[in-house]
Design a binder for these strands. Structure first.
Lengths: 124, 124
DNA sequence: GTCGTTGCAAAGCCTTTGCAGGGAA
DNA sequence: TTCCCTGCAAAGGCTTTGCAACGAC
């Protein structure tokens, strides 16, 4: 039976607090504020379980590597700020649905990764 | 001074022959047909040099990892067939340019990764 | 003959796994 | 008490690097 450990609780809390895609080390660092003994392997294992359970979604980001976000969100895409290195979620979809793929190809999924500078960094 | 080795020539030939994004192991396997002693480290080093020289472009593909393609091509995106695992280049851009990012954000680059089944695999 | 390049093997990252001890139920 | 989960350390992939031998010029 699945056990609800303090480590697991800490990791879930991290995702409730920070509402944006997070990398393993971000989860580890934030989780250790609550459970200082938290181990990297434990984070990896829990993230994997949470993805398998449908609780989280893993994103393979071209610049940031594997990121995790809560899966309850609607379809959206990601913006990477190369100044602060954060990844933002942008609601909605910017894909022109017509004539995206050649005849004969079956389009099933798509991912759009935007990058540039975020509003906070641009203001400075 | 830069030396034009047989290994380098073999790698360049691979990209001339296969006109689609290739992974390191694909380049290695194809290159060994011409230079059997070709080493993986040599491929890595040459691909890196060729990217630095602007001859190739590296793509971080969510499913396939790092791929390399000739950089002379016009802006385009990629379609991954999850049946044959090949990545195709699709000419043109399917990004709706208007209202892609929130006010204040500066959009500089974007990548679109499409996936599904290619025409060849769909026919079977 | 020079000295950049190669092959090999070792070492670095990131991620996964084996195992004994610890803690949730 | 049971047995799943954790922490630790070792081991896997992929990629980079150190070094002696090689080969392009």
């Amino acid at each position: 039976m699945k056990r609800y450990t303090t480590q697991r609780a800490a990791i879930e809390q991290v995702f409730r607090r920070h509402d944006r895609p997070l990398g393993v080390l971000e989860v580890l660092a934030a989780g250790r504020k609550k459970v200082p003994s938290l181990n990297q392997a434990t984070v990896y294992r829990n993230l994997k379980d949470m993805v398998a359970a449908g609780q989280l979604k893993a994103i393979n980001h071209p610049q940031r590597g594997t990121l995790y976000e809560r899966s309850e969100k609607a379809h959206h895409h990601h913006f990477h700020c190369h100044s602060c290195n954060r990844v933002y979620e942008l609601p909605g979809c910017a894909l022109k649905q017509e004539k995206v793929v050649p005849d004969g190809f079956v389009l099933e999924n798509h991912e759009i990764f935007l990058s540039g500078i975020c509003d906070q960094c641009a203001r400075q």
